[in-house]
Every structure is written in structure tokens, then in C-alpha cells.
Amino acid sequence: MKFLIAVGSKEFSEPTLRVGLQVAKAFKAAVTIAYVGPKISEFSTSQVRFTQERMEEWEFDRPGVEVLEWAFNFLAENDFITPTTIEAGFPKNTLVQTGGNRCEVYLQGTVCKDVNLILRNGDIIAELRDEVRRGGYDVTIIGGSQKRRMAHDLIQYINSSIFVVNKYDKHQDYNLLLPVDDSTHTPKAVKYGARVAQAFDVKVNLITVSKTDSFGEGYTKASQLASKMMRRAGIEHEHRFQTGDPVEVIKKTAGDNHIVVMGASTKNPLFKFFTGSKPLKVMEDCQCPILIVK
């Protein structure tokens, strides 16, 4: 599997990187850490690039390299890269330009073979979308940006599962909340949920919510399958059936001490744009990390 972790800055992205690497470790996934710098106007691309090349001659790093260096140090401190790679230090000289506004550096990983650091410039949604298309990532991990609209747009347009590390507190004890229904993506969400629960060593709360008092066959079957999978994986879990508006119930149950894992909506993108979807609505208001599985 391949995970893409998008970091924004040294100051605010530490939880994103920490959680992202922890989850990636559980999946034994290849990890790419990407930083997207500000968009350069098309009128100025050549001039800016050329100036940055000049600045490198004056031993100035191009903007964004310091974020990659911080990510390198984080990887080193948490033993995600091999001792020889750590000893060699951050290889800024091997930052290879692999496109007009993209450069990358390869590192030797311990949990998985490849760890890549990528520096891009441009519109963050467009750049991450392009990176996912290029790398064929299974999960994209982003921070719970203050700009809610950005996370919302990323979920809409990126063709991979999305983990929004929203308000993660490393001192908080989390449980995993796994809403289960008869939608197409639920089985995959259950699988991912089991792995994440193992990664964080937490209890799983399975929840099936119906708007009416009756729970259809599809709901019951899905919940039985989910319970079975948790039992087989040896994960402590409990299952609840609740009545009410699914979005409200999930948000209320999640509170600030759950990691939510749920399947993405299968609605038509245009319809989703105008009416929204359950995962989008939960993501917009919830106060905890959420993984939306596609």
C-alpha cells in the first residue's frame, strides 16, 4: 500500500505526521511526505525558479526545504529511516527536480522500503490531486486545516481514501468509532478500521444508525460481518444500534475522543456537490480525526 502524508508547516503538522506514520506502520505502507508551497503566478514561474537556483549558489535552500528537513528529522527520531540514512543527514543535495514545480528526495525506510519527501508549489488541492494520480496512493493524510473548505474540497476531488487528522491530541485516550451500514464502501472501511485500531491499540465502537426504528437486512448483515472481523482480529469491540439522524448521532458519539473511520459516499459527484454527503457532513463538524475510506 502507498500512503501520502501532506504537511503544511513545522509548527502545525507534527500531529499529522505522527498519526500518519503510525497508521502507515500498521499497514506496512510505503510513505511519501509532501509539502506544497505557495502558488507561483504563471507570469513569474521562470523568474522565480531562476532566482531560487541563484540562491542555491549562495547556499540558501529553496523555500519548503526546511519543512522537508524537519520531516526528515522526525522520521529519524522515530526510526522510520535506516541508521545509514540518518547518519548521512538530510540529503538536500539529492533533491531531484521531477517536473516544473515538483522535486523529490528518496530515503531508505525501515518499516517499508521507500520513504519519499516531495516539495511542490501551486494550488494545494490541484497539486495533491496530481500527486495522488501520479503515485497511485491508497490513503492521503492531511491535517485538520483551519480552512475547513480545503479539507472538504480535498475529500471531494482526491481519488484515494482521506484521513483528516483533525484536533489530534497525543495525550488523549482515543477509541475508534466505526459507523456500519449497507453502503458499498463499508466492508473496506471495516478492514481499514481494524488496522487503525491495531495501530493505536484501541477499542472499536461499531455503530449502526437508522432513521427509523427498524433496521433492514442489509444493516444487520453488515454489522454482523463487522463484528466478526473485529473478533477474528482480536480487537476489543462493542456494537450499538441507534435511531436518529445518522450524521448527528455519529458526531455526538464521536465527541473529541474517537477516531472515526467511515466509508465514502457513493453518490454522484455533482449531486454530492449540491446536497453534501454523510461523511462530508461528519467531517465538517466533528472534533476528532476522521478517515474516509474510498
Binding site: S41, Q47, V48
Partner: peptide, 15 residues
């Protein structure tokens, strides 16, 4: 604005 000219964009690119 940042996009006003390449000069503005160059200094902005310094971060």
C-alpha cells in the same frame, strides 16, 4: 498584490 509582478512574486517565494 503578490501576483502584481515577477518582482513581488520573487520576494514572496522566499517565504
Amino acid at each position: 498584490t503578490v501576483v502584481a509582478s515577477p518582482t513581488c512574486m520573487i520576494i514572496h517565494s522566499s517565504g
